[in-house]
Nucleic acid binder design. Sequence first.
DNA 1: CTAGGGTTAG
Length: 871
Amino acid sequence: MMLLTAKAPVTFWLSPAGHDHRGSVNLKFRQSFLFAKPNSKLSFSSLAYAPAMETKSYMDVELDSSRKIVEFCEVGDLKNAMELLCSSQNSNFDLDAFCSILQLCAERKSIRDGRRVHSIIESSGVIIDGILGVKLVFMYVKCGDLKEGRMIFDKLSESKVFIWNLMISEYLGNGNYGESINLFKQMLELGIKPNSYTFSSVLKCFAAVARVEEGRQVHGLIYKLGYNSYNTVVNSLISFYFVGRKVRCAQKLFDELTDRDVISWNSMISGYVKNGLDDRGIEIFIKMLVFGVEIDLATMVNVLVACANTGTPLFGKVLHSYSIKAAALDREVRFNNTLLDMYSKCGDLNSAIRVFERMDEKTVVSWTSMITGYVREGLSDGAIKLFDEMKSRGVVPDVYAVTSILHACAINGNLKSGQIVHDYIRENNLETNSFVSNALTDMYAKCGSMKDAHDVFSHMKKKDVISWNTMIGGYSKNRLPNEALTLFAEMQSESKPDGTTVACILPACASLAALDRGREIHGYALRNGYSEDKYVVNALLDMYVKCGLLVLARSFFDMILNKDLVSWTVMIAGYGMHGFGSEAINTFNQMRMTGIKPDEVSFISILYACSHSGLLDEGWKIFSIMKKECQIEPNLEHYACMVDLLARTGNLVKAHKFIQTMPIKPDATIWGALLCGCRIHHDVKLAEKVAERIFELEPENTGYYVLLANIYAEAEKWEEVQKLRKRIGQRGLKKNPGCSWIEIKGKVNIFVAGDCSKPQAKKIELLLKRLRSKMKEEGYSPKTTYALLNADEREKEVALCGHSEKLAMAFGMLNLPPGKTIRVTKNLRVCGDCHEMAKFMSKSVSREIILRDSSRFHHFKDGSCSCRGFW
DNA sequence: CTAGGGTTAG
């Protein structure tokens, strides 16, 4: 017995006269069939009994095989039904046979059989229209051939609302909302009255394409046709308004709905959650409990999502036990999946794991949720293991699983695993999914392989704003600010930059000290309403700090309404970079007073500030606060700051001891900080010892060889300098060329040490010569030791004049209006002679010079520098 | 009405 649904009351309608040329055999039977849907409690025969009796007398031989086909279909025997249909000499079957077999083809989604039936119908000469036409359309549509179904649909001479609803809902299911809406408008024009099914589908379409106004008009029509008291229709309207973010409209409908069913309630929870109003969703759930409304799977899934978003695991636990006790949902996969995701989102990974392990049925969703849970906790190795296990159990990863695992590879920089995932993606053609290719781009960018990232990016057919942001952010993070800016410019013509883009591109401006570009982008953010976004705000603050506009940065900071930890950290680091150590400490204390707890990064910035201002005692105090009051274990960076602080302030022995008693293994930067101190305080002996440790740790890093060479040079140990040069040469290492730049009218002018090919080279040379002789007149002697050459003094002076920062400063003096501050940025640390000259320049031409080097800012004004020697 | 995925600041 085949069980069918008929949404009671079943509406019987008559086939158009003339089409039913075989007589009205089993008319009602067919019609009930047509309206029937699977999963009902009504039996097929109970609907069909009466007409079947009437028609007995019409039966002949052909009808007999028709009858048999119907019988085969009744028991679901498509094979025999098809055999009988195909083997018969003539094709004079009655409409019942065709309809039954088409219905079965539709249910089995057997398009091959369906097509054969179609061709037999065509060869039988029966006109395809009326019930038969509708049935054929139904078959094609259900078998997934919407195109063929549509062709027949378009030829139907007259059609009723049912088939229109079918077409509309099929286009909806395929995501072709526009076509659904077209059909809806067409049926209105033809005067076919939509019913509750039509409205449910079409409202979803208007929601999906965000055509809120037209949806409202449909609401009007619903009212006019009297469907505003239909539960299903009002439920659809509620969902529609929620998707359109018209929370109050949805609320009003719900409040005025007298006959709410469980779906109405569920729609309210889901709608609130979709609009970020998780608490109100939870309130609705509680009301359901209070009013004793039936609670089903969807209710629990919805409310668990709300709970996950609010991050309240305690409430989640209550929901968990309630669901098991009251509704025995713990065997439902969907419920378990949501539950484990809730635990993981609430930060209770262990409970999530427990749910996962107890699930007897696991789908790819369960695995993905679990993987994402691991990733969320930073346990990317565990995530990768789970992914492998999932595959070995025969669960096929889908696009969600793949994007999740790519994220895992990204956060631990695991390029190898990432590449394996990429291979899988290629084999299964998943790259066409934009989520996947964006995640791939991000994975490569985070693993530091911008070439691969660009490869994926450039092969994307459709780049969305996230693709661009990922790529631009990747360049920014990988210290390729010029590439970031170039891509940002390219983006303008293809995609509209959003707040995230702004937050991605600003660090590039900051690292280049490209103030004009940064300001432009600030303007863009203001015009487009992104200037309130906290990421944008903090990135802007950082940009102004790093472009040297400390005063402006401070007033910008003061205007931030909700300063978060990052805002404070940027400001503290800013003071540190600019040499205002005590201001940094004041700001740090203010931050703590407002109740914001410092984290690792903010401790780095405050310790850095102390070391760059030589605030020894204060630094130690903060170091102990970090450990004792904040329970933060210092990492290598914190230790580096402390070594730096000790070494700069001349406590070389203490610094050395400090390194030896560190609980974690010191790396090259730790020793490097001590080496810097050795240079400042001219301790060649210690420097040699320290340098050897460094060369063991980082034999390829030229910077340290150069640093030691400088120490030798300052001590005039030229032989040692030569030996070191040889050593560098043998290793095939090259000194990272010094490079400085200055932005003038939005254009970045780059100067490389010793490069005389730049425009205005002659003028620059002349200016520098003049300055040099003026300096000598006033008693400054060139710090020729920085030339690192064992040549005569004259030659050294010439070499020094080729230093990139001098070239850039001179270029600024020549090209900026008088009195305007000169802002120069250098990739390495500023040279001592250049530092002296900048001091002199600031006094003799009375203009401020702000020089940013790889370590800090130097504000030169009236002959002195803000760094007071701490650099 | 119902579960899982991608980009952003120190």
